[in-house]
Every structure is written in structure tokens, then in C-alpha cells.
Amino acid sequence: MDNLAQLTIGATLVFCVLAVAGVHVFVSGKAQREALVHRLSSTQQIPVVGRRRRFQGVDRRLKKTGLGKKVEIKLSATGLDLTPGEFFVYMLASIAGFWLIATSLLASFFGPIAALIGLWAAFAFLNWQRQKRIERFINQLPELSRILANATQAGLALRMALTMAADELEEPAGEELAKVANALAVGHSLDDALGELAERLPSRELVVLVTTLVLSNRSGGTIVSSLRNLTETLEERKETRREVRTQLSQIMMTAYIVPAMGLGCLLFIDNLYPGALDKITGSAFGQVTVLMSLSLYGLGFFLVRRLAKIQI
């Protein structure tokens, strides 16, 4: 009966977590649809209403703190349609879900550990989304450089070329260049606007492009030939990055499979000998042993990921 009750509680918690994730996906999809309707209806004058923000009280209080400002900066770099308050509430719900699931499936000792893992996973998710957005932007840089070269060769000023590229390119390059064009429209210098872009999406390729544009704008040199050469270089780097990512995919999968095997062993032991994990973690020696094992798994995870990071 105890095992049945624990499985029932665990299944309920999993369902709740999946329900929260489903609601978030639904809300994000709805927001994207409304944004698309707004963009398509700009010439048809169709009234569009933005999505209603949730947890506005939490959002207002959180933005007054240093943590809220940092979370807001991270969210702006990921492109997610989330406010700091929404992210904070969803993060707390995920942490509580991890805690209860670990307690019901393993032992009460693993609850706080799972909560810490949930906290790390929330911010790791933001970093992953930010890195994925940067990768997508880097893949668009050759096309961006080609558009700027064609526009400047046709006689357009660099500011007009950036505005045209913002209209032609898809997200995320189009959205980021639109921010640059808006900054230029309100009086920011080209150096500052492009510098903010490089800070939001840091990468070597973007730094090279920004440096080329800034220097050419200052010196008045032949920007067309520079952009033509830069386009070829960016294409080569794009292919190199794709090859390196393919070669390292097996190593990255190993980093996730090894901790998953450890968790599977814990579940297997507890299923084979019901109550074994409670007995193991019931003593100080067992708790220390479990913490050392988890630390070694975590160390191995970070070392493998570190070895798989190759700067090109």
C-alpha cells in the first residue's frame, strides 16, 4: 500500500509539472501567433491585443531587486516571452515539483538535493536558450553581411542598410537589428547601438562584424569590399562550427547519460529492495557517502562539458 501511495503521489506530481509546462507552451504559442497577426495586420489595420501578463504583483516587486534585474537581462537575451515574475513563479513551482517527486520516488533525504538541482536547471535553461539564440544569430551573420554589402554598394547609408536588413531577415537577427535601428532613430550613435548588440549576443563573429562596420563608418573606407570578404569568412566559420558540433555530439550525450545512469541505479535499488534508500540515508555515514557520490557525478558532468567546449 505504501508503494502504491508513493507511486500515485509521484504520478500526480509528474502530471502537475507537465500541466504547467503545457500551459507555458500554450501561452508562448498564443503570444507568437498574436505577434504574427500584428505583423501581418500592419497594412490591414486589424486591432491586435497583446497577451495579458500574469503575476504582475510579483513582477513589480521582483524588478525592484538586483536579482530581478539580472533575470530580466537574461530573459531579454533569450527571446522568451516571459516576465521576471512569471519566470520566478514557474521556477518555484518546478523546484517544489522536483522536491516532492524525489521525496516520493527515492527518499526524503533527496528532496533538498532535487530542489537545488531544479534551481540550477532553471538558470541553466536560460543560459541554454540564450546560447541557442546566439547560435541562430551567428548562422544568419553571412546573410546579414551580404545584405549590408549589397545595400551599401547600391548607395544606401549604413543606417538605412541596417534598417533594410532588419525588415528582410527573420528572427532573431531581424528583431535584434530592429532594436539597433530603433536606437539609431532616437539619437544613439552607431558605435553605441552596435556595441549594445554585441553585449546582448556575444560571439567572435559578431564582434568582427561590428568592428568592421564601426571602423568603416569612422574612416569612411570601402565598406563593400570589407563586407564581401567578411561574408566568405563567416560562411567558412559557419561550416567549421557545424562540423565541430557534429564531432562533439557524442561527448555531450555522454555528459547527460552518465548522471542519468546513476539516477536509474538508485531507482532500481529502491525498487529491488523497497526502503533501501531510506535505510542508507538514515545514518550519517550513508548520507556522506551519497553526497560524495552525487558530487563525483556532478564533477564528471561539468568536466565532460568543459572538455567539449571548443572555441573556434
Rank of each mutant, 00 (worst) to 15 (best):
M252E: 05
V258F: 07
Y256D: 02
E243I: 08
I257D: 04
R228D: 11
I251V: 12
S249V: 10
V244L: 15
R242V: 02
M253D: 00
L234S: 09
G221S: 15
Y256C: 05
E236G: 07
Y256P: 01
S249D: 04
V244Y: 07
T222K: 09
P259K: 05
R237T: 10
L227G: 05
V224P: 00
G262L: 06
T240I: 14
R241Q: 13
E243W: 00
S225F: 00
E236I: 08
S225C: 00
P259V: 08
A255C: 07
T254V: 13
I223T: 07
I251A: 15
Y256N: 09
Q247W: 00
A260N: 06
G262K: 01
S226L: 11
M252S: 07
N229C: 01
T233R: 09
T222Q: 15
E235P: 02
I251H: 03
S225Y: 03
V258T: 11
G221Y: 00
E232D: 14
S225N: 14
T240W: 06
V224D: 10
I251E: 01
R245F: 06
R237Q: 12
N229P: 00
S249N: 05
V224L: 03
M253H: 04
S225L: 11
G221F: 02
G262F: 11
E239V: 14
L227T: 05
E232W: 01
T222E: 13
E243F: 00
S249I: 15
T254A: 15
T254S: 14
S226T: 13
I251S: 11
S225K: 14
A260F: 07
S249F: 13
T254F: 12
